[in-house]
């Protein structure tokens, strides 16, 4: 793996998943993983498998819900969709993330 790619930062995956579901509507695990890879271009190394514990975590907190359904290629797949608390969570998580990013930017800016 090249040095130019970065690992998924702890805690950011959840927000990526939520945002993906917000943008795309109900989606199965593979779809979510592919979408994250596409949006990030080639800058992220994502082990697709890590998406599943993350999905379970979000489901346990009641931010997403899961249902078995049929995919476009006519396969059984588990579809995840946002719940109402999940939508609200995106707002606060986004705010939170922007604050961190801004703070980091201040640290990283040339100080003199």
């Amino acid at each position: 793996m090249g040095d130019s790619k970065s690992d998924v930062l702890q805690g950011t995956l959840d927000l990526m998943v939520l945002k993906t579901l917000e943008a795309m509507g109900p989606l199965h695990g593979y779809g979510i993983a592919r979408r994250i890879e596409q949006v990030s271009g080639d800058t992220l190394t994502l082990n697709q498998g890590t998406i599943y514990p993350a999905l379970l975590r979000l489901e346990q907190r009641g931010w997403v819900k899961a249902e078995w359904g049929m995919s476009e290629s006519n396969r059984r797949a588990k579809y995840y969709s946002l719940t109402r608390p999940g939508r609200k969570q995106i707002e606060s998580e986004t705010e939170n993330w922007e604050r961190i990013a801004a703070t980091m930017a201040r640290f990283l800016a040339p100080s003199n």
Binding site: R34, Q48, G49
Partner: peptide
């Protein structure tokens, strides 16, 4: 069993693509 099925479905989608 639920997880196993989900993972199988994931791989099948990936192989297909």
């Amino acid at each position: 069993e639920d997880l196993d099925e989900e993972l199988r479905s994931h791989l099948a989608h990936a192989v297909e693509e």
